[in-house]
Amino acid sequence: MRQGFAHQAVLDMAPDDDSRAPGAAITTVLCGRWDHEPPCPVAPHHTSEERSGDEVRLRILFATEPHLEERVRQDIDRALARGELVGPDGRTSRWRLLGSRPVEPSAQESEHLARLTRA
C-alpha cells in the first residue's frame, strides 16, 4: 500500500533559467520522460518551486510503497545532481544542487498526498 512522503531540495539557479526544469528532470528519472501520460509507474509525485534570486527551493511530494521510499529519494537526488535539462523549446536550463533531504509533510499537504496515494 502506498504512503505519502515529502522531500526538499535547494538549488543554485540563474534567474533566466526555467525553475520548472528541475521538476521535469525528476519526472524524467521517475517516469522515463517528463511529458508522459498518467499514472506514474513508480511514484506519483508533484514538485513545487519557490525562487528567491538565484536560490530555488523545491518541495517534492510523492507516494510509493514504503520499501521503495529510499529508491525514490535516491532517484530524486540523481535527477537533481545532473544539473541540467533541455526543455521542449530546446533551451537548456542549468542548476547546482546545494542540498536535499527528507522532510515531514505539512498538514496542508495531506490532502494532496492522499490523492497521490490513490493515483
Rank of each mutant, 00 (worst) to 15 (best):
M1F: 09
R2I: 02
R2S: 01
Q3Y: 09
Q8H: 15
A9E: 03
V10L: 14
V10F: 06
V10G: 07
V10W: 10
L11T: 02
L11Q: 05
L11E: 05
L11V: 04
D16H: 13
D16N: 12
D16L: 09
D18K: 03
S19H: 05
S19N: 06
R20F: 05
R20A: 08
R20D: 08
A21S: 11
A21I: 03
P22M: 04
G23K: 00
A24K: 01
T27M: 03
T28M: 10
C31M: 08
G32P: 07
G32V: 09
R33C: 04
R33A: 02
R33N: 05
W34A: 12
W34D: 09
D35T: 10
D35A: 10
E37P: 07
E37H: 08
P38G: 12
P38H: 13
P38A: 15
P39V: 11
P39T: 13
C40A: 15
C40Y: 07
V42C: 03
A43V: 01
H45I: 01
S48V: 07
S48I: 03
E49R: 11
E49P: 07
E49D: 10
S52P: 03
G53C: 08
E55T: 12
V56G: 00
R57V: 09
R57C: 09
R59E: 13
R59A: 08
I60D: 00
A63Y: 01
E65N: 12
P66V: 05
E69V: 09
E69Q: 15
D75L: 05
I76V: 14
A79N: 04
A79H: 06
A79G: 02
L80E: 07
G83S: 09
G83V: 04
G83L: 06
E84K: 09
E84I: 07
L85K: 01
V86T: 15
G87H: 13
P88K: 15
D89L: 11
R91A: 15
R91Q: 14
R96D: 02
R96V: 04
L97E: 05
L98Q: 02
G99A: 15
R101H: 15
R101W: 15
P105E: 07
P105A: 10
P105D: 06
A107G: 12
E109T: 02
S110T: 10
S110G: 08
L113E: 01
A114N: 13
R115I: 11
L116D: 06
T117L: 06
T117Y: 07
A119C: 14
